[in-house]
């Protein structure tokens, strides 16, 4: 009974215009196959989440450290110490920017606004905006864009973990 079938295979399903450039028949791919293709891409894109898992997602949290501990690490580590130092210095830029932004926008709102809650919201928004702007200034002032900030923090975390476990045993 199969002899009656036409010898030519059925034509491929029509594609939409957008997928014209793709040589592989994308429409024939299953979801799992598609996921296999893009898994590495998303693993690279979401790799920054690993930092939060290591810092905040610990089974038992690390004991608190003080500024003196951080200073000790900065003095001891020739590579990541200076990086962590400038990262901590950049806080002052963010805080100063927050102060300036809050004073500016809050002041304008207090002078002209007719709504007390608007003054409050404007002050908060000015603080956030100023902090972001101050952080951006610090980024260029200290060339923080060259620094692996998560890496510098993680180095300290690991150093602190080693130090604490060494004290315990």
């Amino acid at each position: 009974p199969t002899a009656a079938r036409a010898p030519t295979p059925p034509p491929p399903p029509r594609r939409r215009k957008e997928s014209k450039g793709i040589s592989e028949p994308a429409a024939a791919m299953g979801i799992g196959e598609h996921f296999e293709g893009v898994k590495q891409h998303w693993a690279r894109n979401l790799a920054f989440l690993d930092y939060f898992k290591k810092v905040y997602g610990r089974a038992e949290p690390l004991p608190k450290w003080s500024d003196a501990d951080v200073e000790e690490f900065i003095a001891s580590d020739p590579v990541y110490g200076p990086q962590l130092k400038v990262l901590r210095e950049s806080r002052k830029f963010a805080l100063g920017g927050a102060l300036v932004g809050a004073a500016h926008l809050g002041g304008v709102a207090f002078k002209y606004s007719k709504a007390p809650h608007g003054v409050l919201l404007a002050t908060g928004f000015g603080a956030i905006t100023g902090a972001v702007l101050g952080a951006e200034v610090a980024e260029h002032w200290y060339q923080l864009y060259k620094v692996d900030k998560q890496g510098a923090n993680l180095r300290f975390i690991y150093w602190w973990e080693d130090k604490v476990s060494g004290q315990k045993s």
Binding site: F52, V55, S90, R91
Partner: peptide
């Protein structure tokens, strides 16, 4: 993104 940014800056 704000929490991400500032948690890295103020975390340690």
């Amino acid at each position: 993104p704000l929490a991400t940014k500032f948690s890295i800056m103020f975390g340690v």
